[in-house]
Amino acid sequence: MKSVKLKEVRLHHINVSLIAPFTTSFGTMENKDVCLVEVVDETGRSGWGETATSNEPYYNEETTETAAYMLKDFFIPRLLHREIGHPSEVHGMLEFVRRNNIAKAAIETAIWDAFAKKNGKSIAELIGGTKKEIESGKSIGIQESPEALVRKVDQYVKEGFRKIKVKIKPGADIDYIRAVRKAFPDIPLMADANSAYTLEDIGHLKQLDDFNLLMIEQPLAHDDIIDHATLQKQIETPVCLDESIHSYEDARKAIELGSCRIINIKIGRVGGLQESKRIHDLCMEKGIDVWCGGMLETGVGRAHNIQMTTLPNFTIPGDTAPSSHYWKEDIVTPEIEMEDGLIQVPDGVGIGYEIDPEKLAKVTQSVEMIRSTKSRHPIPE
């Protein structure tokens, strides 16, 4: 394999508007700031990643602004002009900084893209992925009423999505799920609570056992694995962990404690593709199903999700929906499309999609070019 050496990194600060507002227990998002990371190697070849952040620190502690700061002041100086034999090395090279996983993943995935392109392979080939198509699920934000939610579900079932995920919170949960299940007795259905409940709600959450759900995702605190183990022992619905899992070690401990039966792997949340693959392999060994969650990514992040989901233990349809479901115009070409609930894995090298420069220009606020390893802070060798 040919190594890569980064001669320059470009941070593309963009703002993209959602087709429709997206509401969770955290709040409502209508537009999103994103920092696209373009690494340029010594041959002029580009690799792309993105910060899968929100505008505010509600999902986790990172925002797009803080991720850009960490990239400029810590991660890019550590990686510029260094010989990188394989992108699997990058995760370890960035461990000198605690957490800040989304910022780490943004540049790590860009390096995977550049390395794969240089070696004439897709990322899926490099990580051992085998699937030629992946199943797509649809995530639905909190609606104004059960009836409104049923209408949304009906629309997406007719479009062919293989799984429906419904966001819930106290006051918008049992009646909403009941209405969906009554209208659609057999569809693969799950609930996502985004940490909206506590152990005091066990009796309430037990009612979900009546609806044959695939899972309830992250019902309790964002950093918890102890209380989730207590909850899982008392409900039949499988618990899926999301926000609690930041690393292989988190996944290992959660599995040993019996905190969940399913894990949602998000590349940004765990710090990149290398750690995602380690968690995938651990879960496959332990008999824990995994799936790929979404962070309202542009086509760059979605492309990385597609490549990762080719791994064999991604047995549940993920949140990687077509571009047209979130953006008026995506920044990749071709746009990500779905047919009969399936997204074809592209044949191209790297992420398999190209950046459309004209579409990128429309949403770009500014571009920073970084060529120097100088930093205001001491960077370990």
Rank of each mutant, 00 (worst) to 15 (best):
E8D: 05
R10S: 15
R10Y: 04
H13P: 00
L18A: 12
P21I: 06
T23P: 03
S25Y: 04
T28W: 09
K32T: 02
K32Y: 00
V34S: 06
V37S: 01
E38M: 08
V39E: 09
D41L: 05
E42H: 11
E42R: 12
T43C: 12
G47I: 14
T53I: 04
N55P: 07
E56A: 14
Y58E: 12
T63A: 08
T63I: 03
A67W: 02
A68Q: 12
Y69H: 15
L71F: 06
K72Q: 15
D73T: 13
D73G: 10
F74G: 02
I76L: 13
R78S: 08
L79C: 11
E83Q: 15
H86A: 14
P87E: 04
P87N: 00
P87Q: 07
E89P: 03
E89K: 04
G92H: 09
N101I: 01
N101L: 09
I102S: 04
A105V: 07
A106P: 02
T109R: 00
W112S: 03
W112M: 02
D113Q: 06
A114C: 09
A116M: 04
K117F: 12
K118W: 00
I123G: 06
L126D: 00
E135L: 09
E135Q: 13
S136R: 00
S139N: 14
S139T: 11
S145K: 07
G160T: 13
I164W: 08
K169L: 14
A172L: 02
A172I: 01
R178S: 07
R181S: 10
A183V: 11
F184L: 00
D186W: 04
A191R: 02
D192Y: 01
D192F: 02
S195T: 08
Y197F: 01
T198D: 00
T198K: 03
L199N: 05
L199C: 08
D201N: 15
G203M: 10
H204L: 09
L205E: 11
Q207S: 09
D209G: 07
D209Y: 01
D209F: 11
D209V: 05
D209P: 04
I216S: 04
I216T: 02
Q218A: 03
A221Y: 13
H222L: 14
D224E: 08
I225E: 03
I226Q: 10
K233G: 06
I235H: 12
V239D: 09
C240M: 15
D242S: 05
E243V: 07
E243R: 03
Y248G: 08
E249Y: 15
E249D: 12
K253R: 11
I255Q: 03
I262Q: 10
I265G: 03
K266Q: 14
S276Y: 11
G287C: 04
I288P: 05
T298M: 05
T298H: 02
G299V: 04
G301Y: 01
A303E: 00
N305C: 11
I306F: 10
T310I: 00
T315M: 13
I316H: 00
P317H: 02
P317F: 04
S324G: 01
I331P: 01
E335M: 10
I336V: 06
E337L: 13
M338E: 02
E339L: 10
D340S: 15
G341N: 06
P346M: 02
D356S: 07
K359C: 05
K359S: 10
V367S: 12
S375R: 04
R376E: 08
R376N: 13
P380R: 06
E381G: 07
